[in-house]
Nucleic acid binder design. Structure first.
Length: 570
RNA sequence: CGGGGCGUAGCUCAGGUGGUAGAGCGUCGGCUUUGGGAGCCGAAGGUCGCCGGUUCAAGUCCGGCCGCCCCGACCA
């Protein structure tokens, strides 16, 4: 490809709206163009990357025995009503009507579609097991699209579905996909952690997430470097700590005027936050107040809370509600003088803490040196705290690492969550009708482009790993007016094409610095610089990744680069 | 969904107190230049997000709407 003819236009100015490096660089280097909020056009170089990612995924899926098909984007309401998700999926579903008033959604995921297809075709246990997959555009009306391709409203996903006769067989399908995913992320050169995960609203019994470690992403993963345990932070269990061995001091009432936050209170009383009982009031289903008590140095994990109370319909109480219920402001809620009918949850972190600071539901006063057993009785303990760096690993007790990441893959053992309500049955060996056991397996294909840039860039631009680079080699002709240089560059370009290298030839009439800067920004793994060394029969080969430079004889340059590329792709 | 901000040339942005729109970069033409986003000369390019109001006069003031970004909540 000659760059002078190629649809690749970089920006010199920094895109003002982008913050995440991947978003900024993909815009600046001319890979993506926004169409509207969370909706992006993939330009030719980005599409080349996307296709390479897809093909790596395809190869590993096919190797695992999965078969590719193509479902539809437009999905009728009726199927979604069968599983109840037309309503429960909520506002995230893009809905529309046809001219006759029939309702559809744009598929955000395809469990209903695939289950419908399979129930119409499959009859017998002889036809199982089966894994089907597609690479398809998906639509989710995200509340807040963010960071370019990282959270888009229209995006490309690989979704696979497994169908088995029994739990054991389903488990084998699940494990097969798990291994395929590990191979895929290795081949994509991504640093990805496989973590245990919550099954969430998709349902099912077992689930793993594949999280790329990045600074921009929605996932938080906790992992143990000792035993290999890794899980989404929101499901890491935290046990009660050891009881503190500390002399119990006499309880005292202390005036704490205008002290509202834990931090202020800790400074005012000169105690660590871990000695303060924090009380947070939630309103469940818009009517039932629940008071959550937690140690002052900890935060509430609302995902854990959701699983405890069994609904996501809850919110923090408003100031007025606190005043109405407790007769005091936020910051002065505690366990003493509690009004009737308020449910109280005790987080494990509070167990065994001595000489606590506790509010007493009276403005501007706290008790200090409050002790369990003597001054109050514990209620029901639960685990609602967010996991933090250095919390003990639930498997082996070693301090955990907690890192931010980007969810690239998610696999679920679904069981009969979809086959049962949709009546996807097969006849088993014993002649009985049984629901198919299902699994589903997603990979965010377009999001992988961003994850790659997050993990492979520097201050000058992107550094694509060779297997996914839009072009493997950039041949830069420095002086377009120099006939000798031009002849050499043309010859090398044709030779590279001939030898099957993905090559772009920068034949544009631009200054040397301009071309170098573009090459760094767009991030081709190798470049050949055709410049003044041509007089000595040489060109310069450079690696974007390592920064290494080699002077190579003109005739050997392409073979030299080809060898490097082959090595990278192994 | 709560909070904040922005919308003027392709991009980044400037345009006290209302007076009919500018810069840098990019683009086009010419000359010069070619190992790190070159220089000089010239030119084109705008329904100032949309609708309404106030006014002799609105990019500027007022009202409504739309779009986009950021923080949080949310996020198989």
């Amino acid at each position: 490809m000659r760059w002078s003819r190629y649809f690749l236009f970089t920006e010199k100015e920094e895109p003002k709206e982008a913050e995440a490096p991947s978003h900024r660089l993909l815009l600046k280097a001319g890979f993506i163009k926004q169409a509207s909020a969370g909706i992006y056009r993939l330009l030719p170089p980005a599409y080349r990357v996307l296709k390479k990612i897809e093909n790596i995924v395809r190869k590993e899926m096919e190797r695992s025995g999965a078969q590719e098909l193509l479902l539809t984007v437009l999905n009728p309401k009726e199927l979604w009503e069968e599983t109840g998700r037309w309503d429960t999926y909520g506002d995230e579903l893009f809905k529309l009507k046809d001219r006759n008033g029939r309702e559809y959604c744009l598929g955000p995921t395809h469990e209903e579609e695939i289950t419908d297809l399979v129930r119409k075709v499959l009859r017998s246990y002889r036809q199982l097991p089966l894994i089907l997959y597609q690479i398809q555009v998906k639509f989710r009306d995200e509340k807040r699209p963010r960071f370019g391709l990282i959270r888009a409203r229209e995006f490309i996903m690989k979704d696979a579905y497994s169908f088995d006769t029994d739990e054991m067989s389903a488990m084998i399908s699940y494990e097969t996909m798990k291994f395929a995913y590990q191979r895929i992320f290795n081949k994509l050169r991504l640093n990805v952690i496989m973590a245990e995960a919550d099954v969430g609203q998709i349902g099912g019994s077992m689930s793993h997430e594949f999280i790329a470690l990045t600074d921009y992403g929605e996932a938080k993963v906790a992992y143990c470097e000792n035993c290999g345990y890794a899980a989404n932070a929101e499901i890491v269990p935290l046990q009660k700590p050891e009881e503190e061995q500390e002399e119990e001091k006499p309880m005292e009432k202390v005036h704490t005027p205008d002290v509202h936050t834990i931090q202020e209170l800790a400074e005012f009383l000169n105690v660590p936050p871990s000695k303060i009982m924090k009380a947070v009031l939630y309103i469940v289903n818009e009517k039932e107040p629940i008071l959550v008590l937690i140690r002052g140095d900890r935060e509430i994990d609302e995902n854990k809370l959701e699983r405890i109370i069994g609904t996501d319909n809850f919110r923090l109480a408003k100031d007025e509600e606190v005043i109405k219920l407790f007769g005091t402001k936020k910051g002065f809620i505690g366990i003493f003088n509690l009004p009737e009918g308020i449910k109280v949850l005790w987080d494990n972190s509070l167990y065994g803490v001595k000489n606590l600071v506790v509010a007493l539901n009276e403005p501007d006063w706290h008790y200090i040196n409050v002790n369990p057993g003597r001054d109050f009785q514990y209620g029901d303990f639960v685990d609602v705290a967010q996991v933090k760096e250095n919390d003990p690993c639930p498997k082996c007790g070693t301090p955990l690492k907690v890192k931010k990441g980007l969810e690239l893959g998610h696999i679920f053992l679904l069981g009969t969550r979809y086959s049962e309500p949709m009546k996807a049955y097969f006849t088993d060996r014993d002649g009985k009708e049984k629901p198919i056991i299902m699994g589903c397996y997603g990979i965010g294909i377009s999001r992988i482009i961003s994850a790659l840039v997050e993990q492979y860039h520097d201050d000058k631009g992107i550094k694509w790993p060779t297997p996914v680079a839009p072009f493997e080699l950039d041949i830069i002709l420095l002086n377009t007016k120099d006939e000798q240089q031009e002849q050499v560059a043309e010859k090398l370009y044709l030779e590279a094409e001939e030898k099957g290298i993905d090559v772009i030839y920068d034949d544009r009439e631009e200054s040397a610095g301009f071309k170098f800067a573009d090459a760094d920004l767009v991030g081709f793994p190798y470049r050949i610089i055709v410049g003044r060394k041509v007089k000595e029969g040489k060109v310069e080969v450079q690696s974007r990744t390592s920064g290494e430079k080699w002077d190579v004889e003109i005739d050997k340059a392409i073979d030299f680069v080809k060898e490097k590329i082959e090595e990278d792709k192994k």
